[in-house]
Structures are given as C-alpha cells and as structure tokens.
Amino acid sequence: MSDSRLVQAFRDYEAELIQFLSARLRSSTLAQDLTQELYLKIRALDDGAVVRNSRAYLFRMASNLALDHLRGERRRAEILAEARSFLGEETDMITPEQALIAREELARLRLALADLPPISRRIFRMSRFDGLTQREIAERVGLSPTAVFKHIRKVMDHLATVRDP
C-alpha cells in the first residue's frame, strides 16, 4: 500500500502537527482531536493519490481542518443567533396587560404541568430554563436526543390544551 508513506510521514511530524494546530486553535485538546481526524483521513486516502511533498501536504491538510473547524464554530454561533431571532428572544417584552391576563393562564399552565410525568417535567425544565442543548439533556437523562425532543413536545402539546386562545 503506497499510502503508508503518508502515514509514516504523519508519525514523523505528529508532534509538530499538534503544536501547529494548538497554535491555530488555542486549544491542545482540540488540536489532538483534529490530529486524530487528520490521521484517519490520510489512512482512508486512495493509495493512488500521488503526494510529492508529504510534509507540506500534511500541514496543508491540518491547516484546512483548522480552518473548517473555526468556520464551523462561527457558523454554529450564527445558526444559534438566527434560531433565537426566529423565536423572538430579544424582542418579547411583556406588557403589564399581558402580565395581568397571563397570571390566570400561568396558574392553569402550572396545574397542567403537574399532571405530567416527572421525567417529562424535568426534561422540559432543563431545556426551557437551564440552557442545556437537547443533546446534553439526552446525555444527562440517558435517553436519545429524539426521546428528549418527544418529551418536550409532549409537554408543549399538553400545556397548549389549557393556554389562552
């Protein structure tokens, strides 16, 4: 297998690659993860791939991985911001009138919430108030993200039956 030459080169430069990525990403844990990803990538390469300068090639790949990662992080932040704005998180001001009307609704909602199984309430609480992602909640309660989603949806459906029209 001719791709073992790249793998060999990787072993030679592994420490340097980690150092390089640490500097780019300002995190050595992340740098190690990406180095591992790089290793998997070159292992999976077609052995027909002709690489003239293994070192330059490895560092270019590492640089691309770092760039992709940073881009991905930025994109994730943008997605979150967009999702928040669709939910109107910044603009939802509560007027006194709404607060007055909502007081009765709130009482009904609390009663309705009490009808629900404790696990559903707990998951709903973690999602709505504790700022956890559905994936994080899934890990904490030992369910799949899909199951977490369903619990929250079930709570929403149930509470919607007593909400103001």
Binding site: D92, P117, P118, R121, V141, G142, R153, M156, L159
Partner: peptide
Amino acid sequence: RFWQRLGRLVAEPDTAETVPEAEPPSPT
C-alpha cells in the same frame, strides 16, 4: 409566543427534580 410565555413558569419550584429515573417515552 406560547413558548415565550412558558418561560414564565420558571418561578415555580418543581418536585420533579428529585426524580432522576428515566421512563420509556410513551408513544405520541
């Protein structure tokens, strides 16, 4: 808007915190 109003349930303490046991999700 309904989701936003649900944010106001936060003041209510909930006994559910003491029940960590997961149950299988019921079919919806």
